[in-house]
């Protein structure tokens, strides 16, 4: 099966210390491939598809006064704007309203940076709460036109929910994974560029196992 998303991600500074973030998956397409017999070639099950809006994330990030170490606190709200009820199970959202509190910190120099984050995601409607964490190391190349980033992201479920899992790996409960990824951002002009990201999983539970690939355009 496949999960394909067209999304917008944006950040804007409201004050020197406060930043607004938004992730808007405005077109989510899920497909379940048709199956055919390997020997006979007979069509066994036709494929199915479902297209819809996804779950929007809105976040506020605030720079905390921690001396020289840059530390920020983020409140992210996961809005149930996707479809979690249609009968094929190809959901485009989880149907629950979640709230995540996350702390981020990092250090850097002119050519490189690194950052770490850990958060607690409080989920509703029988979904288990989660600990989410991530780390990244970035390096600037080609006169700062190319940014290469190694990312590590993970989720640990507290397994305290009542909702069952789905076989699709789409918006299932008790999702866990540890995913390393590589991301490249190339500035075509000083204001905009293109991005590419590939990520896999070292471990996973109730989530699609195949690697994910992302292509994007960015503007700053």
């Amino acid at each position: 099966m496949g999960n394909h998303t067209l999304s917008l991600y944006g950040e804007t500074g409201i004050t020197d210390k406060l930043t607004l973030q938004a992730y808007i998956p405005f077109f989510v397409r899920n497909v379940l491939n048709e199956t055919r017999g390997a020997q006979s070639g007979t069509l066994l099950e036709p494929g199915i598809e479902h297209n819809n809006f996804g779950d929007v994330d809105i976040a506020l990030r605030y720079a905390l006064p921690f001396g020289k170490l840059p530390v920020s606190a983020m409140l992210m709200l996961g809005l149930p704007t996707g479809n979690s009820t249609q009968d094929s199970g190809l959901f485009t959202g989880d149907g629950e309203f979640n709230q995540m509190l996350k702390i981020n910190t990092g250090v850097g120099a002119s050519k490189w940076w690194t950052q770490f984050g850990v958060g607690f995601n409080n989920r509703t409607k029988g979904f288990s709460d989660e600990i989410r964490y991530d780390a990244e190391f970035g390096y600037k190349m080609l006169n700062n036109k190319l940014l290469s980033i190694f990312k590590l992201a993970g989720i640990e479920s507290l397994n305290n929910g009542t909702e069952g899992a789905t076989t699709t790996g789409l918006f299932s409960n008790n999702v866990e994974y540890l995913s390393p990824g590589l991301e490249f951002l190339y500035f075509i002009k000083p204001k905009y560029g293109v991005s590419f990201r590939a990520a896999g999983a070292i471990k996973g539970q109730n989530v699609l196992a195949s690697p994910s690939f992302s292509f994007g355009f960015f503007y700053q």
Binding site: G2, L6, V31, T35, G37, Q39, S40, L44, G47
Partner: peptide, 14 residues
């Protein structure tokens, strides 16, 4: 995006 998101065929052992 359009090409990669088409429904494809999976073959299963019979």
């Amino acid at each position: 995006f359009l090409i990669s998101s088409c429904i494809k065929t999976d073959f299963v052992e019979e």
